[in-house]
Design a binder for these strands. Structure first.
Lengths: 179, 179
DNA sequence: TCTATATCTAAACGGTTGTTCAGATCAAAG
DNA sequence: CTTTGATCTGAACAACCGTTTAGATATAGA
């Protein structure tokens, strides 16, 4: 699974052969079929696993507090979690179209759950009067796109630590939905 | 080229065969080679063409004015331009890894030019005192990620017009880098 | 040590891949 | 009407695809 994830992230699902994955772990291609029914299931398991782990990790965060506090926690959590597993993020955002329709629907549903939490935080902030988003659904999509984009340029060896990145993005997110 | 762009956007570069592209335009696969040297060049021409057209269209916009005015123009331009050609945008952002190293470097350079303009607008705003971005480079990447993300959910048949989307995003962008 | 089970290899399956090429077909120019 | 050059077909090429399978090999329990 790790080898497949790495190769899918690097070259794309369609461009990676079962023989390449097998070679990466030192077996013949046929041996992989003792563990997975087919290539599509391999991709689906990786993506569903990533989304479920994301939701599970998110569920462990505190749920109470002000909308502003929850928004900050969401922002920092998202950046930290995504920067820690760039391959899984990359594959999960890029290979949606490689999923069969049924598998796509499942992953899409999980993603939707995640987006919905942010949307409800923004709605709560609106109700509180502490946040302002003209369209909470679109604001949620915009914030997530902004935050996830960090994985395209962040390099652990670069000039910024994860903490610093968190701070910069939180500053922007906070202001973007401020009253 | 149009057929290839459409298919690449839908299924991905690696997943589309020359025979599929040929069938889309009603010829045999071999006939395509009267116009392109190989499949890689086809992708490269599409991506380079998109980036060059983007830069050319951007270059026609007014360059003067306050940093705030230029930021608004950049924001609205980006959304309008990208929503008008979703396939080209999708392919150009998704298939970077399908490019040969030399071709990747070219496309990456063009993209960098585009990002640099936004970064310089933010720096000018900082100098003017009208904008505030803790790290202009990262703020530029964040804003572009947010704006480009619109192509993932926007549907022409949806509840919002392009003008409305522009307005919502400009509001968020403006606030995110406000003093 | 024998047996049962898990795991692997090596080969094969039918099908598809990007690309080439000889020859057919077409349109326009002389 | 003939010629030229562009364009296309249809077949072929070697290589690779995902997947299956028979049989070899390893592992662990009785």
């Amino acid at each position: 699974m790790e080898a497949a994830l790495r190769l899918f992230a690097r070259h794309g699902f369609a461009a990676v052969s079962m023989r390449q994955i097998a070679a990466e772990v030192g077996v013949q291609a046929g041996a992989l079929y003792n563990y997975i029914p087919d290539k599509q299931s391999l991709l689906f398991d990786l993506m569903r696993g990533h989304m479920e782990a994301l939701l599970a990790a998110r569920a462990e965060r505190p749920k109470g507090g002000s909308a502003l506090a929850r928004l900050e926690d969401f922002t920092r959590f998202h950046i930290r979690y995504h920067l820690a597993r760039p391959d899984a993020v990359f594959v999960s955002y890029m290979e949606l179209r490689s999923l069969s329709p049924e598998n796509f629907a499942v992953v899409e549903g999980l993603r939707r759950q995640y987006e919905d939490e942010l949307e409800s935080i923004l709605r709560a902030g609106e109700a509180e009067g502490s946040l302002s988003a003209a369209d909470p659904r679109i604001a949620a999509m915009a914030v997530i796109a902004m935050l996830t984009g960090v994985t395209t340029w962040y390099r652990a060896a670069g000039r910024l630590t994860v903490d610093q990145v968190e701070g910069i993005y939180w500053d922007m997110v906070r202001k973007s939905v401020s009253v």
